[in-house]
Design a protein around this nucleic acid. Sequence first.
DNA 1: TCTTGACTTGTTATTACATAACATGGGATG
DNA 2: CATCCCATGTTATGTAATAACAAGTCAAGA
Lengths: 164, 164
Amino acid sequence: MHGKSDHGEAFAPHDHAACQSRALVEAEERLSREGARLTPVRRRTLEILLEAHRAMGAYEVLDRLADDGFGRQPPVAYRALEFLVEHGLAHRLQRLNAFAACLHPGEDHAPVFLICRECDKVAETNAPRVRGELQAAAGGQGFTVERATIEALGLCPVCAEGRE
Amino acid sequence: MHGKSDHGEAFAPHDHAACQSRALVEAEERLSREGARLTPVRRRTLEILLEAHRAMGAYEVLDRLADDGFGRQPPVAYRALEFLVEHGLAHRLQRLNAFAACLHPGEDHAPVFLICRECDKVAETNAPRVRGELQAAAGGQGFTVERATIEALGLCPVCAEGRE
DNA sequence: TCTTGACTTGTTATTACATAACATGGGATG
DNA sequence: CATCCCATGTTATGTAATAACAAGTCAAGA
């Protein structure tokens, strides 16, 4: 058992135990302010995510919860994860999983998507400056960007108009 | 015309028929250059996406293909969509769908994720300038951003090191 | 103390999304 | 015309997510 592998440091090495417990303390404070409860499942779920320090699928989280004596059914994990996300203690990566035609196939583009939550229409815009800033931010951490997903969810001008 | 990009007009009313047929023509040109074939299913799939002008799930596309006499099984749609994406004629929105603990729950942040494809570790970085550029780009089209997903897939410094 | 009601956790069952593995048939190439 | 690649279709299965219901906990007020 050496330090380097099983429980990751983020990209930069750091005191993982400290960053976990700090996050847990902050979580408790935050929740008590909001009148929400960090129950055993929820707490354990957060710990699992913090220990892993990487993205985990809901079913992977569920397996660990089950090993720890919690329920074995999907809703157990989904509910706990949903709770954490709602209260800003965890993030959900990715959403839609859908397809849209590319409107400018000729150009070698790095598209940014604007998705209207009302009408589902998708605008594909070429925003090199967004990409540029992303590259810069990543480079600052020694991270090499190969592909990037940039999707904005909101209201298109037409739907925004219609709801005033 | 200002360059090849009238990208900005996606949400604005425009001539759908024209923009569809233009995309189809471009698709054919591009594919013939690459020696790939725009077969009936593939062509119809592209048409469906172009007509919809919005993001569609694979099964929704599949339903339409089936109505038009093509196969009714999921791989029919997935293969055609995959082909279009490979050749730059369509985009896939979103992939992973996983969870990660939030490391800075206190801050009112707009996180940007750096996901290493080797070790799955996720760094959460606060990149206001990326967000800023996104807001600017969206605003230029009259689009109101409510939430944005910004995820970069690539190599973290540790894994990049290990593969040289 | 007892009851009420909101909330949490657990279950079963089902729906949605995606791919593996295999069979068939057409069309270009030699 | 034989061959091979590729496209299309199938069946079957795997993975992700949610709906609907049952039961337990616990604090607040009668």
